[in-house]
Amino acid sequence: MHGNEISGKVAFITGAGSGIGRAAALGIAQQGARVALIGQNCPSVEETAHLIEKAGGAALAIRCDVANENEVQAAVACTANSYGRLDFAFNNAAKQGGVIVNTSSTAGVRGFARQASYVAAKHGVIGLSKVAALDYASDNVRVNVIAPGLSKTKIFERMTADNEHGADQFFDRIPLGRPGEANEIASTFLWLCSDAATYTTGAVFVIDGGLTI
């Protein structure tokens, strides 16, 4: 059964070809949203669209480099033209009365030695999101941040494959003793898009199995 607050609305999901982005797209589509799938890897994004459509949902695959402002604007316009509205955004722009969920990481809430550029960028995502939450609150646009720790994505698989000790050295640092699943990260995005979170803005949700305690 689709939740009334999400069914029929439109979500704009970046990085939708794999990992957390794909999990978020599949999850919100299952709740009845129409989904614009954004990514540079066309086959992967189209595969996500196929999975959604196979399950009876509606999806639009759009090739876009999110580092290119013109391409992002074109992707947002394509979504609005195709579906007539835009309600939720995972990482990018939204319209009036919408929800923006940006992705930082645990590097946005702590420091890591010899990772100055990465840590600065992730702290910046949180700072910009807090400013945006203030700037757009009067338009009823809520802006929040998720900060995942280690999760089972292709990046994590590459990290552990290149290390002789595999994943164990990473798990030892996590109180829950394992990496997160993509759907565990995506579920926070889904909650932030729902009516259960209508009074939540400017918040940072750390999802790391206790790593930063």
Rank of each mutant, 00 (worst) to 15 (best):
residue 5 E to M: 05
residue 6 I to A: 05
residue 7 S to I: 06
residue 8 G to P: 11
residue 12 F to K: 09
residue 16 A to D: 04
residue 25 A to H: 05
residue 37 L to R: 09
residue 39 G to D: 09
residue 46 E to S: 02
residue 46 E to M: 03
residue 48 T to A: 09
residue 49 A to C: 07
residue 53 E to N: 13
residue 54 K to I: 11
residue 56 G to H: 03
residue 56 G to Y: 02
residue 60 L to T: 00
residue 60 L to S: 00
residue 63 R to A: 09
residue 63 R to Y: 01
residue 67 A to F: 04
residue 76 V to M: 13
residue 77 A to F: 06
residue 85 R to L: 04
residue 92 N to G: 07
residue 93 A to Y: 07
residue 96 Q to Y: 05
residue 100 I to Y: 08
residue 102 N to K: 01
residue 106 T to Y: 04
residue 108 G to T: 08
residue 113 A to R: 15
residue 114 R to Y: 15
residue 117 S to Q: 15
residue 118 Y to R: 03
residue 123 H to S: 07
residue 124 G to D: 06
residue 124 G to K: 05
residue 131 V to C: 14
residue 139 D to S: 12
residue 142 R to N: 04
residue 146 I to H: 04
residue 150 L to C: 00
residue 155 I to E: 04
residue 157 E to M: 00
residue 161 A to N: 11
residue 162 D to P: 00
residue 169 Q to C: 08
residue 169 Q to D: 11
residue 172 D to H: 11
residue 173 R to Y: 12
residue 176 L to H: 02
residue 177 G to K: 00
residue 180 G to C: 08
residue 180 G to H: 07
residue 181 E to D: 11
residue 182 A to R: 00
residue 182 A to G: 00
residue 183 N to E: 12
residue 184 E to T: 00
residue 185 I to C: 03
residue 192 L to F: 02
residue 194 S to A: 06
residue 196 A to R: 11
residue 202 G to V: 12
residue 208 D to N: 13
residue 209 G to I: 14
